[in-house]
Computed example of a mutant assay.
Amino acid sequence: MSATLRNSTIRSGRSFDLGKMNLRQLWVAYLTYPTILLYFALIVISVALVVHLAPGWVPLAASVVAVMLVYPLVWYLLHRYVLHGQWLYKSRWTAALWKRIHFDHHQDPHLLDVLFGAPATTLPTIAAVTIPVGWLIGGWGCSAAAFGTGVTITCIYEFFHCIQHLNYKPKAAWIQKMKAWHVLHHFHDEDINFGITSYVVDRAFGTLYTDAKSRPRSPTVFNLGYDIEEAQRYPWVMELTGSAPRDRPDGARPSSRTDRTAA
């Protein structure tokens, strides 16, 4: 684990390695994690605003459904073109942002501290996507409903994202499949399977792959293209990390079979 990640863990006073946790331990960590508690509070506030502003059942339902339809597409586009884009680390002013929102997660996929998005980046994004949708449908009451729906979906995404990195084999076949496809994203090729709970958009854009044998393993799956050469040209992420970018996370072995089955 990098020095920066260790310091972050020390400051937060808690650390969770999903690769060493079971489902019960995940529930405890998830339901007590400050970011998730903040999301829960915002959902309650959103519901209170909806009740107070009384937008009506039809526009309310339309707002909720609209966000549910838009959210997977927005997540896909952000994940593929922003989180996996290279332009953020090429600027001194945005390197720290890119490091926090995604590079650290690919460097250490099991670390819960960096798996959850930071509220300072997630909440403005959720608001920017959902509030205008609600407003166009039915004013501020629907905006509150749309924002609350976005935060709720984020909570669901975050929980299943944890499951995908947890030392646990789900009993439900659909969760097993979802987890296996996400594992391919982290351990075989970072340019496939950008979804979390839904891969409909991946299928539509041609980035859904269900078998590691269907394409060669990416040499940049753990560093997202920020290798030693890039770090020398754009050193800010490396300086913040305190060490050179790694080609493999801690504990990973070079076996392709391990890459396909690690979770």
Rank of each mutant, 00 (worst) to 15 (best):
S46Y: 05
H105L: 05
H110E: 07
A62Y: 00
R92M: 00
F16R: 02
A120P: 01
I228Y: 14
R14P: 01
S256L: 11
D17Y: 12
F147N: 01
M21I: 04
D108S: 13
H105F: 13
L83F: 15
S2K: 06
P119C: 03
S255V: 05
R260A: 13
F187C: 08
Q107W: 07
T35S: 14
H185Q: 10
T241D: 10
L111C: 06
L88G: 03
K90L: 02
K169S: 11
H188N: 12
N22G: 15
L73V: 15
Y157N: 13
R80H: 12
Y71S: 04
V74C: 06
N22H: 14
I43E: 09
P109R: 04
I43V: 15
D227L: 00
I137Q: 00
A172R: 10
P254H: 11
L83P: 13
W57I: 04
K90H: 14
I137L: 06
W27T: 13
P245G: 08
T197N: 10
R14V: 05
D211R: 14
H106G: 08
P170Q: 07
C162F: 05
F16V: 03
F160N: 10
A262D: 15
A262Y: 14
R92S: 04
I163E: 02
L123G: 12
S243P: 03
I101A: 02
K90C: 03
L111H: 06
D113V: 04
A146Q: 00
W181K: 12
M238F: 03
I153G: 13
S2H: 08
V74R: 04
Q25N: 09
A252S: 14
K99Y: 10
A172M: 08
V67I: 15
L73R: 07
A263T: 11
R14D: 01
L184H: 08
V58R: 11
R100S: 04
H186D: 05
M68I: 06
A127D: 01
K99H: 12
A244F: 09
R92D: 02
V133G: 02
A172V: 13
H185L: 08
